[in-house]
Amino acid sequence: MILETRNLTKIYRVGKEEIPALRGVNFTLEAGDFVVINGPSGSGKTTFLNLIACIDKPTSGEVYIDGQPTSQLSEGQLAELRKRKIGLVFQTFNLIPVLSAYENVEYPLILLGVSRKERYQRTMALLEEVGLKDLANRRPDELSGGQRQRVAIARALVTNPKLVLADEPTANLDSETGKQVMSIMRRLNEEHHVAFLVVTHDPMVTQYAQRTVKIRDGQLFDGGRTNGA
């Protein structure tokens, strides 16, 4: 099991008021899964993703990544875990604007201390897989939205993570480009046998899911397994 959450709760405190964002969520994800969590704004999607990505702490409950409990890990240990086991794809792409597409994809490998030669091979291979080999030297502002998201997907996968988390990956793309991006993610999920967890409010994305989970008011409702697109 790549990911497991047990009784995951997140409560935000605003003054004296307590706002529950997640209410005791139990969830599991196996290697090679492609799961879409679908829900409206304010349903707790991003909170759930942040907790799984280990960039936020739950109020109670536990997140297990590749069998390892994360609540007791230090900031540095969590950064190490994110670096080695988790790939992230953001709604607004979040590429480093001063780096080229190649350098953006290469960046996580530098954090891992991979040799220059291996970095080159792995980065170029990923860029080729997302169809951007020829645009490797372009900076993000010289790429279209779809191309930027493909760079972000390559960056998320270049470290061979166990799990890729995508937060609204199609929200800033037109529908056609969104479909292309989802197709690429689905293909890479199958080829790399890496688990994908996508949170979105876009119904189109659910077409690509093996399993769709609804989220509403901080609670998950498993919609069962499908074949995906």
């Binding site: 960039i55 950064a79 190490e80 994110r82 670096k83 607004t92 979040n94 960046y107 954090l111 960056r155």
Partner: peptide, 16 residues
Amino acid sequence: TREVGTIRAIGTKRYQ
């Protein structure tokens, strides 16, 4: 700020 958030999220440590 958001760029810092991004690089921290993908595993960059504070001292880095």
